Amino acid sequence: MQQLNEKFLMFYNRLLKVYKHLSKQAARQGIACYRVYDHDLPEFPLLVEIYESKLYVAEYKRRHEMSEDAHEAWLEQCKAVMSEVLSVKIEDIYVRMRQRKAGRLGQYQKLEESKSEFVVTENGLQFIVNLVDYLDTGLFLDHRVTRQMVRELSKDKKVLNLFCYTGSFSVYAAAGGAKEVVSVDLSKTYLVWADRNMRLNFPEFKSHSIVHADVKQELGRMQDGAFDIIVMDPPTFSNSKRMDDFLDIQRDHAELINECVRLLSPDGVLFFSTNFRKFQIEHEKIKASNIKDITKVTTPFDFSGKLHRYCFKISK
């Protein structure tokens, strides 16, 4: 690598230090997809995730006061540093621009039509990821531990996955021996993706239902006590034209949780999570026997000290 100036040398050293630490933990746990950098240095507002032999890089939008050419040169130098430190080919580094927002806004936004898909493995299960066509990759790495929790509880259970995205929780439930899995989302694109993920892992699993619906409406149509496990990971805010009303998770979470509790069997549990940084759970409005904050225990090693989401295990 060419001689680095002081600023890029700082980025090089930081990335190398973090990667040495995290790669050892990843190797011990047999994990090949993990986050390695998230805006550690103000001068380098990047998010970097490893997906086996490829890199997903998101640049947070900012006023960098660089010309277009200067910014392009800056980005190319960043890629050269990442390629060197992380041993990834330049052509296997995929860069996206994203705004720093409270929650997973814009996850349904399609960016390109390249169909740049490949399959990665997590805990013995396979998932289709796409580092080019969408703002998010298809696999939220921060829920790795929570997914495994659901897997361990799913034996002979009926599982409902709300705001299911690409169905990773549904696949984990099937892997745990679930009797039935229902995946609900408003995006047909992601429901197809969820179905493909399920078929990729369990082509003979016949008890996976795909429901294209607004979750708030669908919950009202479901029967009391129908499920043993419910997973709900909603966006912070959504105002899709296909919805009767907009969703605001701070305003609506108690109502959504209470509807989920109604659907739970007597010993059922709800895993509820949100990426809204200022979220405050309204205990007094929730009709459940126990609300346990499991944010800390579900935080993966690569998100330690940097996880901006909350996770709760709620018992009927």
Rank of each mutant, 00 (worst) to 15 (best):
A27Y: 03
A173F: 02
V182G: 00
L160D: 02
T295A: 07
R144M: 07
E117F: 15
H212F: 10
E52M: 10
P300T: 01
H283Q: 10
L9H: 11
F118G: 02
D92R: 06
K115M: 10
I50K: 15
G106A: 05
R96E: 06
I314K: 01
S273L: 10
T121F: 13
Y51C: 01
M10C: 14
R277A: 15
V95L: 10
Y190L: 01
L75Q: 09
P266C: 13
A174G: 13
H143S: 12
T295V: 13
P235V: 07
R309L: 14
C311T: 11
L139Y: 11
D142C: 03
F301S: 09
G106K: 01
E122W: 05
S304N: 11
C33H: 13
K306Q: 11
G138H: 05
K278N: 13
R144E: 08
P266G: 14
A27M: 11
L86K: 08
E152T: 13
K157S: 13
C311P: 06
E113I: 12
Q25R: 15
E122I: 02
D92C: 06
E49C: 12
I230T: 03
I90Q: 15
D233I: 02
K110W: 12
E91L: 10
G167D: 01
G268I: 00
N201E: 05
G167F: 04
F140H: 01
H253K: 03
H208P: 06
E72L: 15
V129C: 08
V159W: 00
K285L: 09
W74P: 00
L9R: 12
L131A: 07
H21K: 14
L139W: 09
S238Q: 09
V261P: 08
V145D: 04
Y94V: 08
H143P: 13
E76D: 15
Q250M: 09
L162Y: 01
K287H: 07
F276S: 09
E59C: 14
K24P: 02
E218A: 04
R147C: 05
V95A: 08
N290H: 11
K292H: 06
F44T: 03
D248W: 04
H212V: 02
E122T: 00
F276K: 12
L307F: 07
V85T: 12
V120T: 03
S265W: 09
I93A: 02
N275I: 04
K155R: 12
D195Y: 15
M149V: 14
K54H: 10
K316D: 03
Y12C: 12
N123D: 14
M82V: 06
C260Y: 00
L200S: 03
P234C: 06
F202Q: 08
K17T: 12
E91G: 13
A173K: 04
C164E: 01
Y34Q: 03
L247T: 04
C164N: 00
N258Y: 12
